[in-house]
Design a binder for these strands. Structure first.
Lengths: 212, 212
DNA sequence: GTTGTTTTGTTAAAAATTTCACATTATCTC
DNA sequence: GAGATAATGTGAAATTTTTAACAAAACAAC
């Protein structure tokens, strides 16, 4: 179905938000929605919504709008939420634990299979019903469980130590909470960075800006 | 010092990354850096770096480059990291806890003063040496501690319940981990959203894209 | 000092993104 | 079923962002 003219990152980053709003409409049994109504709801322009949707071939009907249910399903397909990606988390500290417990991986097409730690106190325990393993079992686990995604919740220098191992065993997709620059070292990877402290500094800037 | 021609959000979002790289250079006792060297390091264009820095008046010297130490200090001033913002966290669940423990608030110009929870099992305990208080003491705490920022680590509908209270007691700055759309309700707020699940869906899209 | 090299600050061009505008097509009402 | 209304899809304009290019300024070496 996709037009596939190389979708820009600006569009891609808006897709999850569309999906959220459309899902909520579906939950409230809304049958259809126009780009202008959705725009009003999401506080964006109707034009942008239509342009964005049209990147994927356009799934509306002139004079009618968009079918919410159809839109939702299309979005799920586009985002790949109906596929399954076997996932591991590296690091069972505060962050890794929070990610494991807080994110509904299953709902987003990810299957969390294991968590890896170096701290012996935590190894052997469970987090969110998932076993915490020692790093020594990492490579074998990746192979036997068909892991394709690693979530990095360890400090920058720990990533430096472990990244080659992951890459060389076929892991090319990363959800990266560390400040290690993965795509610099391995350019044929797909890396999604979450830099929370950058976000906080951005907030700091904007607060400070108004004070000047 | 700032030119203040209304800095674009694109530039603002790059500032923390600059600050990170410059800080690292400073730690490694690098005295000076040229835009081209920094560009090589950060994997961006030298032109962009110079353009970005010049939004704030330009702090380099032709033929020399940028003094790392000076650059770092300027960045700190620009980002407002040397100011102090009294902060509270709403929600001491997995996420709130991880944020409290994982983020070095002090280093980013924020002073964490309290954490608020509804779960009676957690109220009265401490997280990262910070007391966990009941919601009943919220308003009084805001006033007596000169709180200006709230970190929202509670679900969307809980935010709906509490946001008016926060806003009406003078809190206009939010670090928002929930999916509640704060700026829609109160337009004169400064909101920095961290939507981790959106980030994960973006990753899912990009992984899926290569499969098609 | 003078010359050559380096590198910024800045102007201009290129590219990307967003918004506008409207023809076309569908729905809805009477 | 005809006319009025609604709303998409899309080409083009406007805006924003990024990159390129270079003149001016500082440094370094001799």
């Amino acid at each position: 179905m996709p037009k596939h003219d190389k979708i820009s990152m600006s569009v891609i980053r808006r897709l999850p938000r569309y999906y959220r709003f459309i899902s909520e409409l579906a939950e409230n049994d809304v049958q259809r929605i126009s780009s202008s109504k959705l725009a009003e709801l999401m506080n964006v322009t109707a034009s942008q919504i239509r342009q964005d949707f049209n990147c994927f071939g356009g799934f509306g009907q002139q004079g009618y709008g968009y079918s919410v249910e159809f839109l939702k399903q299309e979005m799920e397909t586009i985002l790949g939420l109906n596929k399954v990606n076997n996932t591991i988390i590296l690091g069972a500290g505060n962050l890794g634990k929070a990610v494991a417990l807080h994110i509904n991986f299953a709902e987003k097409g990810f299957k969390l299979k294991g968590i890896f730690e170096t701290n012996p106190d935590i190894i052997g325990t469970q987090i969110a019903d998932i076993n915490v393993y020692p790093e020594s079992s990492l490579i074998n686990f990746i192979k036997t469980n068909d892991i394709s995604i690693a979530v990095l919740c360890i400090p920058k220098n720990s990533v430096g130590e472990i990244i080659d191992k992951l890459y060389n065993n076929g892991i090319k997709n990363f959800w990266n909470f560390s400040h290690y620059d993965i795509s610099r070292k391995y350019s044929d990877t797909i890396v999604e960075n979450v830099h929370m402290s950058d976000s906080l500094m951005t907030l700091s800037y904007r607060i400070n800006e108004t004070r000047q």
